[in-house]
Amino acid sequence: MESMNVSEMSVFFGNALKNIAYEMAGVELIDTVPGDIAAERKFSVIVGIVGAHKGRVLLCMGDNFVQKITEEMNCGKLDSLTDTTLYIGEFSNILIGKAISQINNACKTFDLRLTPPAIFSGKRMRIITPELQSSILSFTSQFGPASMDVGFERCR
């Protein structure tokens, strides 16, 4: 029986975030210790995962990081906060899609799939997600921090 625990899975998600941020926007992310994201405005993206294991990935990013990523994606400034949230949602969808493809290729019985992302932006946001085994990854970059909380309902 193929198996993988949450920490093992989270490595795929962390690597995908680093690779896609670099590939799409030239942003280099460096691992750091978990902590609150100190930014006036934050963006959070939640993508559900279904298949043999059910879970979700929560990405939290500061305003500067999101502006840099989305402007590079758009080849210029975006007109509205709505467009910014839609672009960062697609960025998240792409990197999480990459990670689950690699997990599925490693563990074929998992057959993980994504739900369309939900995106939030605001000031003083705090999201609490109980009753999941989760693994928190934190990163820093010259455009500010990003963090990722990978949680699954049941895993080895």
Binding site: I96, G97, S101, Q102
Partner: peptide, 23 residues
């Protein structure tokens, strides 16, 4: 962005022959 073998098989069963990755 999803490019695993299981998805490719489902897509090919549906009639898709050509794939491009995201990004």
């Amino acid at each position: 962005a999803i490019t695993d073998e299981g998805l490719r098989k489902s897509a090919m069963d549906a009639g898709v022959k050509y794939f491009a990755p995201k990004p």
